[in-house]
Design a binder for these strands. Sequence first.
DNA 1: TCAAAAGTGTTCTCCCTACACCCATGG
DNA 2: CCATGGGTGTAGGGAGAACACTTTTGA
Lengths: 232, 232
Amino acid sequence: MTMEEKRYCYRYPHPAVTTDCVIFGFDGSRLNVLLVKRGGEPYSGWWAFPGGFIRMDESADEGALRELCEETQLKPSYIEQFHTYSEPLRDPRERVITIAYLALVKIQEVKGGDDAKEAQWFPIDHIPHLAFDHDVILRDALARLRERIHFHPIGFELLPDKFTLRELQTLYESILGIRFDRRNFAKKMHHLDILNQLDETVWPTPKREATLYSFNIEKYNELKQRGFRLEF
Amino acid sequence: MTMEEKRYCYRYPHPAVTTDCVIFGFDGSRLNVLLVKRGGEPYSGWWAFPGGFIRMDESADEGALRELCEETQLKPSYIEQFHTYSEPLRDPRERVITIAYLALVKIQEVKGGDDAKEAQWFPIDHIPHLAFDHDVILRDALARLRERIHFHPIGFELLPDKFTLRELQTLYESILGIRFDRRNFAKKMHHLDILNQLDETVWPTPKREATLYSFNIEKYNELKQRGFRLEF
DNA sequence: TCAAAAGTGTTCTCCCTACACCCATGG
DNA sequence: CCATGGGTGTAGGGAGAACACTTTTGA
């Protein structure tokens, strides 16, 4: 880099600031993470989270959404900032602080929309080595997701609008890593009264049809206002 | 600022990055926040959280602790990063992104150690207008504190090493803004088995003595490892 | 007729909640 | 002797956990 190119000068050293987005999707049986293959140095050819440098006229939230859209064409159904990583040597080029986001997408709605980008879904238990400190970031994102799902209905953001009870249960089981009794899970969901039972059915297996449900956000908000705590 | 003083140049614009520390203390009856009065512009004379610019050779965690120590001489018994604020215009001087921390101190151990600095404790319901977006930051910090206290024993970080059951209950009530039944609260604490009942007593009122307790972190860790969830 | 998955109900236990009495002390 | 606050016990209800049978369908 020549001196002429360095046009932005400050009295004190400033770090660069990026956003990184950990995007979770659920394929019906397993939790997945969307990674992009890096083109340039450093870590060329490694997998990493979509993200990039924040612009001076946008907030981190806006930057995260912009980068996410640019690199993956995805519209997340949920996004939340969860931690900022600032180890001085985490990027070999210069001091880079990254603000990390956790995003959830309804994977079914966008399958195949990956464009020409080298983006790919990886099951949560088959993640390749990641660039920078992204393995740490992933671990933290998963912990936050597990924490959040206990008291917020964000699990529904990973499912299609209509789903079966079994899909919902499999989702929770794969995120939390525990198994539920099928009958107790159904009872609990019905008791919570945040699901709409639809008239439609599907054939998830060739054996027998299953009724479809949708998430009732109005009922959820009612309950929340009355001092209610969702828990799994 | 003259051109000669602007010695740190980059190809792309970089924001400045600071840390800010929301420090909570409990005076025995109310939750308090430590604020410092700003000397320089902008917001000269306004109250704000202790904090400052991050150095290029330190992580945000290190920077937050350094600033906290420099400005208040306090050693927090607990500190945790909780959110990063990045609205482009939140600082009138230049683009400043701040990484906000939540800290708890045992207020009794440091009373009067405020040095010559203009630092002062404010009860949580009598907070003056704050500089920058610090009122938003405070609101978020309080929300995080309330969220954390449900499942982590961080409340004990606000109490002296020895405390009465009433002090503990008052602490929880003032943080969560709800009242507990005295008998049920005591029963729950005893049942959790994370308190050491000491042989000592104090006279919190001139009426009758009360037994002192200390927090038993070993028992808490045992329970945590067995898949236990602390809840209030 | 058999295998596989959907749908549903009961019992037991534990924890939370509401609630009342006794005791020690200082005024 | 009375007001104040500390310390403890009990009964009832609700939610989670354990658990089994029936139904539907394709092979």
